[in-house]
């Protein structure tokens, strides 16, 4: 069985957030809503200062606390390990959001859809068509572009990444690009102390 996962290459990521905009495009996300964010952090003291760019995303945890707390069964794990939210079942209690140590969940408030991307209440044709997929009030997150995965495509954020800092594939397959990368470059999951067993790894 497949276990889809992602590796982030911190050596190459330039913090451009092209991934973020690609995700906004693919998923018609309202203003201020992110399924992925590339964060930055400065460290060190001049002149030995530096900045690291850290892409973040839902880690599709094997031991997903968001799924465990979900009282409605809306959050579930697909056959290939992708953690999904069924918005037909979701009641918007946001228990999952306080359970996710990575703060990866967003409530799709109704006013998000009303003010529009330009903030004027004018809804563009792009939004009109795209917003139809959401049930206002439900909680949502990155689904690893599950439909693209079903169609044998890489996620939208992955294909656009100019520096190939996002590598996607089957972690159960030892020959897949992410598996190799994790092995060869000592990949580490985010916040392992949270015991969520993420399917996302970082290499440096």
């Amino acid at each position: 069985m497949a276990r889809m996962g992602m590796v982030f290459d911190l050596k190459t990521c330039i913090g451009c957030n092209a991934c973020v905009v690609a995700c906004k495009q693919e998923n018609s996300l309202p203003d201020g809503v992110f399924f992925t964010k590339t964060l930055s952090e400065e460290y060190g003291v001049f002149p030995l200062a530096n900045r690291v760019y850290i892409p973040t995303i839902c880690n599709h945890c094997d031991d997903a606390p968001c799924e465990k707390v979900c009282p409605s069964g809306a959050t579930y794990t697909r056959h290939d390990g992708i953690v999904m939210v069924d918005d037909a079942k979701c009641i918007g209690c946001s228990s999952c959001a306080v359970a996710c140590p990575y703060d990866q969940r967003t409530t799709m408030d109704a006013d998000n859809f009303l003010k529009g991307l330009f903030g004027t209440g004018e809804i563009t044709p792009f939004e009109k068509e795209g917003y139809a997929r959401y049930t206002p009030g439900t909680v949502t997150k990155c689904d690893f572009c599950s439909q693209r995965v079903d169609a044998n495509l890489d996620p939208a954020c992955v294909v656009t990444c100019p520096t190939n800092a996002r590598i996607f594939g089957d972690l159960d397959d030892p020959h897949s690009a992410p598996s190799k990368m994790i092995r060869e470059r000592n990949g580490r999951p985010p916040m392992p102390e949270k015991n969520t067993r993420p399917k996302v790894y970082y290499v440096n």
Partner: peptide
Amino acid sequence: TGVINKIEGNPSNPSNNGKLCPKGN
């Protein structure tokens, strides 16, 4: 329905290899 709803890089173009920067996106 005639709505432009996604732009991706063209992987057949060896210049940008299917990649777009945030502006292009």
